[in-house]
Each structure stands twice: as structure tokens, then as C-alpha cells.
Design a protein around this nucleic acid. Structure first.
Lengths: 113, 113
DNA sequence: CGATCATATTCCTATATCGGCATACGTCAA
DNA sequence: TTGACGTATGCCGATATAGGAATATGATCG
């Protein structure tokens, strides 16, 4: 089997650095493709393809505005990623010396995921 | 060019669902490969390969324990992902074309509860 | 040493990219 | 309609997978 499709879920979609850059740029507001491409130093077809992936996983929405097509952020899909990583928060705040204590705690409530 | 290597960064490493499952499982403590593989219904070589990727991006560390090799979580690498997604937190509840107004609505609604 | 258990690596196949280039499509203006 | 502009899509080549099977490496014990 090959790698999963980038359009399969948000985790795959944001694995691409340029797509992450696109998302960051879109926090400033809606933008047409050409502007995004230019600002990130990518070609127009390149930007279009990445935006397509982002749209297919729901991280981006598009809207026609005359000749242009404005892309805008829909960051709701990033929330699950934030929450999933947040499930590890206590592990990066604690030194490894004290991890064992947490491990014991977790062993009791171990059927969470 | 193809997609960047999974070993290049954490975003790519956690794009794989089985690797995420491994990480979740490791929150309960160190485990040998075979146990992890069995619990997740994967083959031993499959588990070994995924653990290798996780180790190369630093999300997992291993330690010899006799015949076995115990894998343990090192979740510090997940923090950048958490923080990156956190940068979109205020957009999660965004109404696509009227962010500011919607944010105000939410703030008010929250206070009225 | 030889046997056995635990884990890692190699070889293989099928597939999903990502980027570049050319081009098709869609919309507006004259 | 024709042309110009903005955007999307199709095709290509090169590469990095993920999974399966077989095998190699490593460690322990009798």
C-alpha cells in the first residue's frame, strides 16, 4: 500500500509545509490564488493544487468574486489536531524522572482511546 | 519531487493513523514491540517500522531490557504541533465571511449562559 | 555452541504524491 | 465575438511511501 491520500484527513493535509504556510497566510483574510502564490513564491498551478487539497479536507473555502476566486480559512478542522496533541500536554511538561508517577495514574484509566 | 519524507518532521510522522495509535498507547507507559503490535492488530515488522519513524523524529525513545526493547513516549515534539494549531484557535468558530461579528456573538452568548 | 525468543532490516509491489509545463476553463470588457 | 485575465486541470517524471514475506540481527539460556 502507498501512503494515505493527503485528502484523507486533516493530519495528512497539513503534513505539507507549503499548505501550512497557505493556512497561516489566510488568517489575514480572504485572498485570490495568484496573490497567495506570489507571496509564498510558488507557481499559480502549485498554489491551486494545494488549495484544492485544503478545500477537500474542509480547511479552506472558496468564493467567486468576479474573475477571481477568493480563498478563505475555515480552521474548524484544526481543532481535532489541537486537541489530539493536547492529550500529550502533561508529558511534555514533566521531566522523565517523574513520568513513572503519571504512568501509574494512567494505567488505571487506560480505556480512554 | 515527491512528498517530503515522514522522517523529516513531526507533522509528517503523525500523519499516519497507526503511528498516532502507537503514541496514544505509549502514554500508558513503556512497552515492547510485540505487545504494541498485538494490541493494535499490526504485524511485528509493521510496528517496528512505524516505531522507527517515530524514533527518528524524536517522538519515541527506546531502551534495552534484556531480550526486549522497550519503547517509551517522548512527547515534547508534539508541542510545536499543538502550538501551531493553537494559532488558529480564534478562527475555529468563525463564520466564514463575518468573523468579527460572529466572535462578538459568541462572547456575548457565553456570558449569558 | 546451539536453540529460542524479540526485534530489525531487506526486498518487493502498488500507489500517492509534488512540482513543472502546457493547456483548458471561466469570467469580464470592449 | 474576441481578447485578456484569473484559475483549474491534465500529463509527466521522480520519489517516498505502507504493507507483506522472508530473512537477518541480537540477546538469553541450557
Amino acid at each position: 500500500m502507498a501512503r494515505a491520500a493527503t485528502t484523507s484527513d486533516v493530519f495528512n493535509a497539513i503534513a505539507e509545509p507549503q499548505r501550512r504556510e497557505l493556512l497561516v497566510l489566510l488568517r489575514a483574510g480572504e485572498r485570490p490564488v495568484t496573490e497567495l502564490a506570489q507571496e509564498l513564491g510558488m507557481t499559480q498551478p502549485g498554489a491551486s493544487k494545494h488549495l484544492r487539497v485544503l478545500r477537500e479536507v474542509g480547511l479552506v473555502r472558496d468564493r467567486k468574486a468576479g474573475k477571481q476566486r477568493l480563498y478563505g480559512l475555515d480552521a474548524r478542522g484544526l481543532r481535532p489536531v489541537h486537541e489530539w496533541t493536547g492529550g500529550f500536554e502533561r508529558f511534555w511538561n514533566e521531566s522523565f524522572d517523574r513520568l513513572d508517577a503519571y504512568v501509574q495514574d494512567l494505567k488505571q484509566a487506560r480505556q480512554e482511546e
